[in-house]
């Protein structure tokens, strides 16, 4: 059983985020907290002797990374730490800040092998964390297979966070069947954890099961959760509603999410707003939002794919010969 502090921390980490997904640092810096994750980053560390010290430090570091503030990780975690989880997270931060090189990945690979050793001084939980962090990095690097293997997908390990990541990886490669299998595997021992519910909801979003009702209920329930409030949840529900075809309701959720961030719109909300506006009657709004998204977050996948498609369009257009305009010859 997690202590209360750690529980709250994890809850915020899993549900309260609005985070970054791109590999370049400038993007991250523009995505800075605005409420999301803030509570986490601002969380006070307990005494070093406390058994919560390592876990809280670990999640705090990951929150920093999620916000793109990799520098903070370096200052947060002593360089000479012997703890594997903390080591892993330090390396992960390094990887995020400079994803080009393979060095960080190699380091993570080494760590993964090290923890397999018999005489290693790490708890099972810490080992799990190392795998989670490494799996995330591998997934980001596109090493899907390695990531899944590291996370112990299709095995019997009881590492819920790893399962969650595996589920998302499966979904990203359009294998909802495997994602569900992984989810079902966790169900018997996960004690109905919030993370498990989040997984179920995510699978629902991709597969559209029962008209997205799982996801809708999940986010609606969490929004009503007294111990948690986050614009990310609103955004997520907005996206769910978009998927359900409830464009007006989606818009109101997204607007509320922006309001909760004092008018600042994060990439995710803005991207969803673009989509929502594009489906509404006033297409002009969509273009205005789009230009804001494209200029503020050029690395957001929506922006990049749309740009890619636009240039694809330009390439394709030339394949068609355009005949001369029919000019009336004489009246």
């Amino acid at each position: 059983m997690d202590s209360t502090d750690l529980y709250n921390l994890k809850q915020h980490f899993f549900l309260g985020m609005a985070h970054s997904h791109d590999r370049t640092l400038p993007f991250f810096t523009r995505l800075l907290p605005q409420g999301a994750y803030k509570s986490l980053v601002e969380q006070k560390l307990p005494q070093q002797s406390s058994e919560d010290y390592i876990p809280i430090l670990f999640y705090k570091a990951r929150a920093h990374i999620a916000l793109g503030d990799t520098q903070a990780v370096a200052s947060l975690i002593p360089t000479d730490t012997e703890n594997f989880a903390l080591k892993a997270v330090t390396v992960f931060a390094k990887y995020i800040s400079a994803p080009a090189g393979d060095a960080a990945l190699e380091e993570l690979r080494d760590l993964c092998i090290e923890i397999e050793g018999d005489d290693v001084e790490a708890t099972e939980r810490e080992k799990g964390w190392v795998r989670v962090v490494a799996g995330t990095a591998f997934a980001r690097a596109g090493e899907i297979e390695e990531a899944l293997e590291t996370l112990g997908a299709e095995s019997t390990t009881e590492n819920l966070e790893a399962v969650a990541i595996a589920v998302q990886i499966y979904l990203s490669i359009h294998r909802p069947d495997l994602a569900r299998k992984e989810f079902e595997r966790a169900k018997p021992w996960a004690e109905d954890d919030l993370l498990l519910q989040l997984m179920e909801s995510t699978i629902g979003l991709v597969t559209g099961k029962d008209g997205y009702s799982d996801s809708q209920s999940f986010y609606t329930e969490q929004l009503a959760n007294p111990s948690l409030s986050s614009p990310h949840l609103l955004t997520a529900r907005g996206v769910t509603r978009l998927l359900r075809g409830e464009v007006q309701e989606a818009k109101s959720d997204l607007e509320e999410a922006v309001l909760q961030q004092d008018g600042h719109d994060d990439a995710e909300t803005l991207a969803a707003s673009v989509v929502a506006a594009g489906l509404g009657p006033k297409k002009g709004d969509a273009d205005e939002l789009w230009s804001r998204l494209a200029s503020a977050y050029p690395e957001h996948p929506l922006v990049s794919t749309v740009y890619a498609k636009a240039s694809e369009f330009d390439d394709l257009v030339v394949k068609f010969r355009v005949p001369p305009l029919a000019i009336p010859t004489a009246a």
């Binding site: 980490f13 899993f14 985020m17 985070h19 970054s20 997904h21 990951r62 929150a63 990374i65 999620a66 992960f92 995020i96 995330t136 997934a139 980001r140 969650a164 990541i165 998302q168 990886i169 990203s172 989040l198 997984m199 909801s201 995510t202 979003l205 955004t235 997520a236 996206v239 978009l242 998927l243 995710e268 991207a271 969803a272 989509v275 957001h300 996948p301 929506l302 794919t305």
Partner: peptide, 11 residues
């Protein structure tokens, strides 16, 4: 299409 990040630090 729309995008959502259920988990931290993943695309």
């Amino acid at each position: 299409h729309t995008y959502l990040s259920p988990l931290a630090s993943l695309p």
